[in-house]
């Protein structure tokens, strides 16, 4: 009974953990354009519309069908992302754009609401239950035409206005900071050209990891030895305190072997063999798969 209860508890905990792991906590609003008059981005019908960019900040693909997008916190289920569209799975660290054109019949990525220029625009994403708010942002009313309200870096907390200039480029469906080199490698190439610093750090880490492991096992072995000694004494009916006061109990394998050999020599003890040879037939189940007759040839033996 107890075992069954334990199994049920484990199953419930595992299910809870799995559902948590599958949550959409990593989904976020990444960049928003409220007035899209003549920017370079148009929808698949060739029209200019306001757009909302979502970003999957996790390192695993994320299925977003059945989450809700809304511009009204009182109506959280305004636009449900439809099921059955393969494009609703956002790859790891990638983006997807929704058009705020109030024309949901145009396709999965066309929202059922519009954003209003000159007003604060609140946008939120709710999970499939329509209650859990995953992310929200309030786009300021003074956002100019063809500019965006964007996170400074993908998925990070800071926001800024982007006007399309060289320093503040607009990045629909793309990373807000475009990185074309491996920063770490460049840094090591510049600051540690001869590799001495990395060598020093890496050796220190490897050494300390193994040192900690070795200390840990030293302690475990000492504790284990102590416990097994106490258990042995208990089995022999000797109280551990008596041993602490009295003589040392020695059970090293070497000493036992030496005593055994000495006894063997002293008693001139030899094993007596009965010198009877018995031959028994070995029975093996026959199988054509292992039959030599059906084999093409034996494997060469070296």
């Amino acid at each position: 009974m107890k075992k069954n209860i334990l199994l049920v508890i484990i199953a419930v905990v595992a299910c809870a953990m799995t559902s948590y792991a599958q949550g959409r906590k990593g989904l976020c609003i990444n960049e928003v354009m409220v007035q899209n008059d003549s920017s370079s981005i148009i929808d698949e019908y060739g029209l200019y519309h306001a757009w909302v960019e979502l970003f999957n900040s996790t390192h695993a693909p994320m299925e977003i069908s059945s989450v809700f997008l809304t511009n009204d916190p009182n109506v959280p289920k305004k636009y449900p992302v439809p099921l059955g569209d393969v494009k609703t799975e956002i790859p790891s660290r990638q983006h997807v754009i929704f058009w705020a054109d109030n024309e949901p019949n145009k396709g999965t990525f066309h929202l059922s609401f519009q954003l209003e220029a000159g007003k604060d625009n609140w946008i939120g994403i709710y999970d499939a239950d329509g209650i859990t708010l995953i992310d929200s942002v309030t786009v300021p009313a003074n956002l100019a035409s063809n500019t965006t309200w964007a996170r400074i870096a993908d998925g990070e907390t800071g926001w800024e206005v982007r006007d399309g200039s060289e320093a503040k480029y607009i990045t629909p469906s793309s990373n807000n900071i475009i990185v074309d080199t491996n920063g770490k490698v460049d840094m090591f190439a510049e600051k540690d050209a001869n590799g001495f610093v990395l060598t020093l750090m890496a050796m220190a880490i490897v050494f300390s990891a193994l040192l900690v492991l070795s200390i840990c096992f030293y302690i475990i072995s000492k504790t284990g030895e102590k416990i097994s000694k106490i258990n042995k004494l208990k089995a022999q009916g000797i109280a551990p305190e008596e041993v602490a006061k009295g003589e040392k109990i020695n059970d090293s394998g070497e000493e036992i072997a030496a005593i055994a050999m000495a006894l063997h020599e002293h008693l001139n003890a030899h094993d007596q063999e009965n010198t009877i040879l018995t031959i028994n037939k070995v029975k093996r189940a026959y199988s054509p798969w292992s039959s030599k007759i059906y084999g093409l040839r034996e494997l060469p033996r070296r």
Partner: peptide
């Protein structure tokens, strides 16, 4: 049985980082 031998295993990894410096 002899945990201090782990340090020998750690020391030999200097081969990796020594070669790293030469490769650079």
């Amino acid at each position: 049985a002899n945990p201090k031998l782990m340090l020998v295993g750690a020391a030999a990894q200097f081969g990796i980082f020594g070669a790293y410096m030469v490769a650079l």
